[in-house]
Each structure stands twice: as C-alpha cells, then as structure tokens.
C-alpha cells in the first residue's frame, strides 16, 4: 500500500534525482530554495511524462556504466586523431568507405539507443539505420580495409559492456 502510494508520487526515482542534479548544475549554486525548486521539477516532470515512458530502464551495474563513459571518452579522443589523419592525408579515391551490418544482442531500447549514439560519437563510424525488427544496426564507416574487424570491435568493445550494464 505504502509502496503503491510512493510509486504514484515518485514514478522514476532515478529521473527525479537526475533532474534535481541537472537543475543544480544549471543554476550553479546550492541553496535551500534551489534544491526545493529542483525537487519540484524532479517530481513534476516524471509525473507528467510517465504515460509516455511506462517501463523504466534498469541499470544493473552503475559502476560498469561509469567505466563505460570513461572508455567512450577515451575512444573519442583516439578516434578523432585517426579520422583527422584520414581527412588530411588520404585522397577521396583512396578512402574506402563501407556499410557495416552489426547484429544486435542487446534488446532494450535504451541500450540500443546508447549503442547507436556511441557509434556515432566515436568518429569514423555513423549509425544510419536500424532493421525493422531491431535486430541489426546499419553503420557507415569512413575508412576501413577490414569491415569485419570494425563490426567485431563494436560488438566486443561496446555492446558487450552495455549488455552487462543493462541486463
């Protein structure tokens, strides 16, 4: 009973905390008034948007998520340099672009979204489309001589970790 009421008031506890944190970062000061205002926002927005978002994503291992973010940040830096070299030193005719099909093992929409975003943010690959039954991801790669290796790296480096985080 108590749980049901609590569920009614705070449908997404993590989202509430996240919105409060975002609000405090936005106003850049921690005072009682701002915390209260942030809490009000954090309670109102999940309440209003709940019908659009019936299942909340479960994050099984938050620590793994932190590791994932750091890994992606590092990869972005490395990949930036790689792509900069391709743009600077390779002629268009010498750049071998490929479509890559990545079969997906992750099933939750949140995990697929994060994987697609990660692939786009690490330069050199752009997520282009999802199969109609969400089983494969179409990725465009700027330059590679071995498309299979790129696919395996995406699966091994990112998807495996996301699977651990979300399942």
């Amino acid at each position: 009973m108590l749980k049901a009421i609590l569920n009614r008031i705070i449908p997404h506890p993590q989202l509430t905390g996240f919105l409060l944190l975002t609000w405090l970062l936005l106003v850049n000061s921690i005072s009682t008034g701002n915390v209260l205002l942030g809490l009000i926002i954090g309670l109102l927005i999940p309440g209003i948007t709940q019908p659009f978002w019936p299942d909340r994503p479960k994050i099984a291992r938050p620590l793994k998520a932190v590791e994932y973010v750091l890994l992606v940040l590092w990869d972005i830096c490395v990949a930036n340099v790689t792509v900069a070299r391709i743009i600077l030193f390779k002629s268009n005719a010498n750049t071998h672009s490929h479509w890559i099909v990545v079969p997906l093992e992750v099933r939750s929409p949140e995990a697929i979204t994060i994987l697609a975003g990660t692939i786009t943010m690490t330069p050199g690959t752009v997520t282009s489309m999802l199969a109609a039954d969400a089983s494969h991801l179409l990725v465009h790669c700027l330059h590679t001589d071995d498309p299979d290796a790129v696919r395996d790296e995406i699966k091994h480096r990112y998807e495996r970790r996301l699977k651990e985080i979300f399942e």
Partner: peptide, 17 residues
C-alpha cells in the same frame, strides 16, 4: 545499394512490418 540485414526483415526505412 545497402547490404542485407541478415535477419528476417529489411531496414526500418524501407521495410514495413
């Protein structure tokens, strides 16, 4: 012009399910 999905259905923009 695109590679096939390898699954039962085509790419989301082209295939209706």
């Amino acid at each position: 012009d695109l590679p096939p999905t390898g699954g039962q259905y085509g790419w989301a923009g082209y295939d209706e399910i």
